[in-house]
Simulated assay, not measured.
Amino acid sequence: MNQLKDYIEWQAFGVCTALGEKMGIATTRIRMWFIYISFLTLGSPVVIYMIAAFWLNIKRYIFAARRNPLRYL
């Protein structure tokens, strides 16, 4: 059970961590509010979370391609 919790907290896209670092807010507080808002709005923030996760993944890919452009040809 702890392995699943660790994976979700540290590996699942990193959206809450990225928001926390940019805004200067604790990651746990962002996760808590995300859960509260998801329950109140019947899960619609999950769509926003997935869009943000996609955006962060594309951003990492583009940054990695800039550092080593020959690797992605």
Rank of each mutant, 00 (worst) to 15 (best):
F34M: 03
N57I: 02
L4W: 15
T28Q: 15
S44M: 11
F39G: 06
F13T: 09
L42S: 08
Y7C: 10
N68H: 12
I25Q: 14
I62T: 07
A52S: 12
I51E: 05
R67K: 12
L73C: 06
I58T: 09
A64Y: 11
E9N: 14
T27M: 07
N57P: 00
L4I: 15
R31Y: 00
R67G: 08
I37L: 13
F13E: 13
Y7F: 15
Y72Q: 04
A12S: 08
M50G: 11
P69C: 10
W55F: 10
Y36P: 00
C16I: 00
V46I: 12
L4E: 12
L42E: 00
R66M: 05
L56R: 13
E9F: 08
L4D: 11
T27S: 06
F34V: 01
A64E: 12
I35M: 07
L4F: 15
I37D: 00
V46L: 09
K22I: 00
M1V: 09
C16E: 11
I51C: 12
A64Q: 13
R29V: 15
E21D: 08
L19W: 11
F54D: 01
L56W: 05
K22L: 08
M23D: 00
E9D: 14
L70P: 07
L56P: 01
L19A: 03
N68E: 15
N57Q: 10
A52M: 13
M1R: 10
A53F: 02
A26T: 09
L4P: 14
Y72N: 07
L70M: 06
I58L: 13
T41W: 03
G20C: 04
I25T: 13
W55N: 05
N57D: 09
M32E: 06
N57R: 09
R29A: 15
L19S: 00
V46A: 03
S44H: 03
L73Y: 05
I35F: 10
N2T: 13
Y49A: 10
G20I: 04
P69Y: 04
Y7I: 14
E9P: 02
Q3S: 15
T28S: 15
A18R: 10
K59T: 03
I62W: 07
A52V: 02
M50P: 07
P69F: 04
L40T: 03
A65H: 08
A12G: 00
I37E: 01
A53S: 13
S44D: 00
T41D: 04
R60W: 02
M1I: 09
G14A: 09
T27W: 05
I48C: 14
E21P: 08
I37R: 11
Y72S: 07
L56F: 06
R67T: 09
K5P: 14
S44I: 14
W55R: 08
I30S: 04
T41A: 02
T41R: 01
S44K: 01
F39Y: 11
P69K: 02
M50Y: 11
G43P: 04
S44E: 06
G43H: 05
M1S: 14
R66E: 04
E9T: 10
F54S: 07
R29H: 13
V47W: 01
W33R: 12
G24A: 09
I48Q: 08
